[in-house]
Amino acid sequence: MMSEIKKIKNLKEFSTSADRFEGANLLCPGCAHSIIVREVLNATNDDLILAASTGCLEVCTAVYPYTSWDASWIHIGFENGSSAVAGAEAMYKALKTKGRLKQPERTPKFVAFGGDGATYDIGFQWISGCFERGHNMMYVCLDNEVYANTGGQRSSSTPIGASATTTPAGSISYGEKKNKKDMMAIMAAHGAPYVAQVSPSKWKDMVAKIQKGFAAEGPVFINAISACTTEWKFAPEDTIAITDLATDSLVFPLYEIINGTELNITYRPKNIVPVRDYLGAQGRFKHLFTKQYEYLIDEWQTRVDLKWEQLQRREEARV
């Protein structure tokens, strides 16, 4: 059976698809991780072989003797979810060659999930290795811009000015000092067939991208914004609203890069929201709204404007 693109008509049908990721999990109320994972898994009817790096998703979904996963799933450590699924994919190829697959007519998809700590920082080498080798796999980064599982330490995805427990805001510090690492550019530079940034609040855009990713041959990188009610400090019921602010302020623009060269912007907000509104909605940026640090909000806006301009130039130039 060749895999076919799953037809999705509306949100109701999508959200009530048979779950291979159960609602019975220990994630915080309002956690975006579970929304993203459901959207990825529900985008296909194919079998799935999944991996997770150590992090919120892992510790909250596979606590013995329970599992939230109704698809094969593996976790080894913090840094190697990518390699775990790459190893499984290699075994799939080997058994296919040798005629030992139990269900040879089915073509499972291989997906690894990791947080930004596992992706931007500690697991970066392993991911780079998997992408250079060209495993047929999808890597989904659940990007909440902080080590949330261990209580909010900064990662190289934490943006400037965010207060994290290891870069706290204080009388002489505005929090994180470094700009967020451009993981999309780095992964595209591997020559991956498909690299995309997605938001769970823009579910149609996301499903289209996941399906494109599943259709591609080779390693696919998906960077998903995952608003964190606990560490970003907003009310659990505001997860989708905050996520919309991120995409509509262009702090987290939605685009894809095909074969490392062809960049397409996939979402253009009708009304672009000021970055100030996005920052102001989260406790982690509260200290920026003081006389001492207010200049950083303007810098933020300038940075976001420049990035948006650069993306548009690349899209126009087809590079």
Binding site: I49, A51, I74, I76, G77, N80, S83, A84, V85, A86, G87, A88, E89, A90, M91, Y92, A94, L95, R100, W126
Partner: peptide, 11 residues
């Protein structure tokens, strides 16, 4: 890490 994933996959 790859060996672990491959072994868990069944071979």
């Amino acid at each position: 890490s790859c060996c672990i994933g491959a072994s868990a996959a069944g071979g």
